[in-house]
């Protein structure tokens, strides 16, 4: 593959496409605000946050693979911290939670050195066994089960699931002659985020019938179907350009991403409902917390990774 600025040429042009879309969306939002001042403040801060997020992502993938891995690990850190700050925790586990954070550099190190088996078992096997035993050693049994359960789920979601992005970046390199590991990462992240926006937009335009009235009353069948179809269409266009998949396989990958993204979204919504909060935090103006932004990726990253690995690696 041809390289431009150290990146596969196709990724550079695709990135330029994302920026063009961002600029077009920004102009649209500015026109809306100019026509009806005060009506679109939320949309304006949302768009401003997209500039920061797309800027950070572009910077991270452009500098080097190592910077990209550190950036993805930092997202896991922010997500785990937000999660641990939201859930009820026991005072006795304070020191132990520091160990939980240590899981992040270790897990991303397995991804960085492309040690797939260790990457796969570290959180679901070793940490799954380690933390409950450590809690038992500390001797406090009151609230033991909920402490074990919440920590294990949080580590799986924010560390294990999200780290599939880093593993895709590293291990995908040799299996993608078109645009390398970074092309696959780009395909996953951009389509998942696009899918969120598409489902939201279709829902706003046509939304009538609620999918999950108890969990996320704003989600509608119209938004879900319209969003997934839009994602499938975009995936079919950019898939052959960024990945070794042809049009049909790319469309299927788009379907996997769209549905998985939706499931990740409602899963985090279920957690928020239980905790009685609207947003998981205030880190990203207009969006909420980091978990509100990466909720769909917690499902889409492992789903796409294993889809691609099963069908496209020997």
């Amino acid at each position: 593959m041809t390289r431009l600025f150290g990146l596969p040429e196709h990724v550079v042009y695709a990135t330029a496409g994302v920026w063009a879309l961002l600029i077009a969306a920004t102009l649209l939002v500015l026109v809306l605000r100019w026509r009806k001042p005060g009506h679109y403040d939320e949309l304006v801060s949302r768009t401003a946050s997209w500039w920061w997020m797309i800027g950070a992502f572009t910077f991270a993938i452009a500098v080097s693979e190592t910077v990209a891995i550190v950036f993805l690990a930092f997202i896991s850190y922010l997500a785990l911290k937000e999660y641990l700050s939201l859930i009820p925790t026991r005072r006795i586990d304070r020191g132990l939670l520091l160990f939980a954070y240590l899981a992040i550099p270790i897990q991303y190190y397995w991804a960085a050195i492309d040690w797939y088996n260790m990457f796969l078992v570290f959180v679901p096997v070793w940490l799954f066994l380690f933390f409950p035993a450590l809690m038992a050693f500390r001797g406090e049994t009151r609230g033991f089960l909920s402490a074990v359960g919440t920590l294990s789920w949080g580590l799986m979601l924010t560390v294990f699931c999200l780290s599939h992005m880093a593993m895709l970046l590293v291990s995908g390199e040799v299996h993608n002659p078109v645009a390398g590991g970074v092309g696959l990462l780009f395909f996953l992240v951009v389509l998942t985020q696009f899918n969120d926006v598409a489902q939201y937009t279709w829902g706003k335009l046509l939304g009538r019938h609620k999918v999950t009235p108890q969990v996320s009353p704003k989600k509608t069948w119209e938004g879900l179907v319209g969003g997934v179809l839009t994602t499938v269409a975009l995936a079919a266009v950019i898939g052959p350009y960024l990945t070794p998949m042809d049009v049909l396989w790319s469309a299927l990958a788009g379907l996997v991403l769209g549905v998985a993204g939706f499931l990740g979204d409602i899963t985090i919504s279920g957690m928020k409902r239980d905790l009685g909060v609207k947003d998981t935090g205030g880190l990203i103006p207009g969006h909420g917390g980091i978990l509100d932004r990466v909720d769909s990726l917690t499902y889409a990253a492992p789903a796409f990774f294993h889809f691609f690995r099963y069908f496209f690696t020997p």
Partner: peptide
């Protein structure tokens, strides 16, 4: 929660 009285171990928690 991040740094309570009597502890010198800083554990990351979001603060509102």
């Amino acid at each position: 929660k991040a740094l309570p009285k009597g502890s010198s171990l800083l554990v990351p928690f979001n603060c509102t």
